[in-house]
Design a protein around this nucleic acid. Structure first.
Length: 512
RNA sequence: GAUUCCGUAGCUCAGCAGGUAGAGCAUUACACUUUUAAUGUAAGGGUCCUGGGUUCGAAUCCCAGCGGGAUCACCA
């Protein structure tokens, strides 16, 4: 086993033994009470010096600069970093007994160890607010060396760990050594809190609905399948929670929402992870126009809560989340970017258009899919500023109410930002007869080989037959929204633990 | 799933007309009681992703596998 360890790892295990021999516990059980944070000190010390004469703080050792009979070190707590100044004379007042400084501190402490210190705050000659340490306590010994990232006065990083595999597999290390990464995840939580506050303040009720479903409904996607032993039935991990939230609208709640972890057994790339988060909410007695207005208000608030402004930098662009957003029908969008009016075309005419535009199509594609292809290839990427695309063909929206005045269309919108779909919403279909026919159309698609067509959920139909009020519903891709608002190009950078292939055999991991 | 690039010390990387490995930081030792990418001197550390092949000889060339990134396809 020892043969697997690097030189530095072996050394640290030896230090563990040396600590024990010196009577120092490497993993003490006692509480170490803390009365200040690094951020607090840096923020408030200058104007309230008296308050920082007797402080106690804990954190991870990030660097040590040994000056002989004194050392400078830096610890990092959950709020940031602060410098320590440790003098031999202070730690070991008795010159006869210098073990604590010369042995425990200078020989047995390492970068990565977690320590607690007591002392007082002062400012060094170089002007850095620091802690003059009067005593220290080892709280946890680190056995693996921490990658060292140094930063100079101008903020330039050296030896920054950028290897994506390292960062995603050992996110705990990434979080320790890359403060920007930690900030991104704090921002993610802020975004979700902002949304939750908006909804709760509006009188919405947060609910939990099943993740394990006998019929994976509410979306067109390939599900993960599992098996329940006691019931001896197959169960699916949910691909959406839509049908359950609408059951709750039937049940008499007027506004329900859920942050739903959804699972789809499909490809992975920069914008797809097998499990991802969608916020869905449903509001009784509203329609999709109301939902557009509400979406504008919500996004404007999120941007303000997070950045203090509605202008957000994403890559080399600036996106304005200030309401109102542009609204355009999908037919007008196609006309704008191709010059072709497809609104009255039949399937054969649409096929000719696709050929003229050099789009790849196949025989199985129906009218709606052809329109979707034209939009996806020729229009979608152009909508950088938030834009509502409205009034989709009925064939691709089996859960959406037919348009109040436009034949063949439904009352649906998608919100496009930075060329990507961020939200999908509609006036919900609440006519149980119509809904049953739409499901049956899906079954026909399934029989023609569409492996993503929806199953019929008979219990959902039964619920609709009891009567569902007219309802507006929406789903937001939370991960993608976070990518936008935190300016991260990959979904892996807004997921703490993105899905990865197993890195090696379990026994080898255990041997570490 | 397809194409393409990558995998060398704890970390970041160099080494590739094929001659069994180097740098900086980190580590170890010594010096230094307000330094800050601290500094100075010295030292240790590597199944060069794995397995085959070509060759007198492979980190370097070829093939396969594993892992990762990017692009494409499917999708949110």
């Amino acid at each position: 086993m020892t043969t697997n360890l690097s030189e530095q790892e072996q050394l640290r295990r030896q230090k563990l033994i040396d600590l024990q021999n010196a009577g120092v516990q490497a993993y003490p059980a006692e509480e170490f009470s803390v009365n200040v944070t690094a951020h607090d000190i840096k923020e408030n010390y200058e104007r309230d010096k008296l308050n920082y004469k007797d402080i106690s703080i804990a954190g991870r050792l990030m660097s040590i600069r040994d000056m002989g009979k004194a050392c400078f070190a830096v610890i990092q707590d959950s709020t940031g970093r602060i410098q320590l100044y440790i003098r031999k004379d202070d730690i070991c007042p008795n010159p006869e007994d210098t073990k604590l400084y010369d042995l425990v501190w200078k020989k047995l402490m390492d970068i990565g160890d977690i320590i607690g210190v007591k002392g007082y705050v002062f400012t060094t000659k170089m002007g850095e607010i620091s802690i003059h340490v009067t005593s220290f306590t080892l709280l946890s010994k680190a056995l693996k060396p921490l990658p060292i990232v140094k930063t100079d006065a101008d903020g330039n990083s050296f030896d920054e760990v950028t290897d994506p595999e390292f960062r995603y597999r050992q996110r705990y290390v990434d979080l320790i050594i890359n403060p920007k990464v930690k900030k991104t995840f704090e921002q993610r939580t802020k975004i979700i809190t902002s949304i939750r506050n908006f909804l709760n303040d509006s009188g919405a009720l947060e609910v939990d609905t099943p993740v394990l479903q006998a019929i994976p409904g509410g979306a067109a996607a390939r599900p993960f399948i599992t098996h329940h032993n006691a019931l001896d039935i197959p169960l699916y991990l949910r691909i959406a929670n839509e049908l359950y939230l609408k059951r709750l609208i039937v049940g008499g709640f007027d506004w329900v929402y859920e942050f739903s972890r959804n699972f789809r057994n499909e490809g992975m790339d920069r914008t797809h992870n097998p499990e991802f988060t969608v916020l869905e909410f449903y509001v009784a007695y509203k329609d999709y126009f109301w939902m557009m207005n509400t979406t504008e208000k919500l996004l404007e608030k999120i941007a303000n809560d997070l950045h203090g402004t509605t202008d957000v930098v994403v890559g080399d662009k600036t996106i304005s989340f200030a309401a109102p957003f542009k609204r355009i029908t999908i037919y007008d969008a196609i006309k704008e970017y191709t010059g072709i009016d497809v609104s009255t075309m039949n399937e054969a005419e649409l096929r000719d258009v696709c050929k003229k535009l050099h789009l790849e199509i196949d025989e199985s594609m129906g009218k709606a899919k052809l329109i979707d292809t034209i939009f996806g290839e020729k229009c979608e990427g152009n909508f950088i500023q938030p834009t509502f695309i409205t009034d989709y063909p009925v064939e691709m929206s089996p859960l959406t109410k037919k348009h109040r005045s436009k034949e063949g269309l439904v009352e649906r919108f998608e919100l496009m930002i930075n060329g990507k779909e961020i939200a999908n919403a509609y006036s919900e279909l609440n006519d149980p007869i119509d809904q049953r026919e739409r499901f049956e159309d899906q079954i026909k698609l399934m029989e023609r080989g569409d492996d993503e067509a929806m199953f019929i959920d008979y219990d959902f139909l039964r619920a609709l037959e009891y009567g569902m009020p007219p309802t507006a519903g929406i789903g937001f891709g939370i991960d993608r929204l976070c990518m936008l608002l935190t300016n991260q190009p990959s979904i892996q950078d807004v997921l703490l633990f993105p899905q990865m292939r197993p890195e090696k055999k379990a026994e080898e991991v255990n041997a570490d």
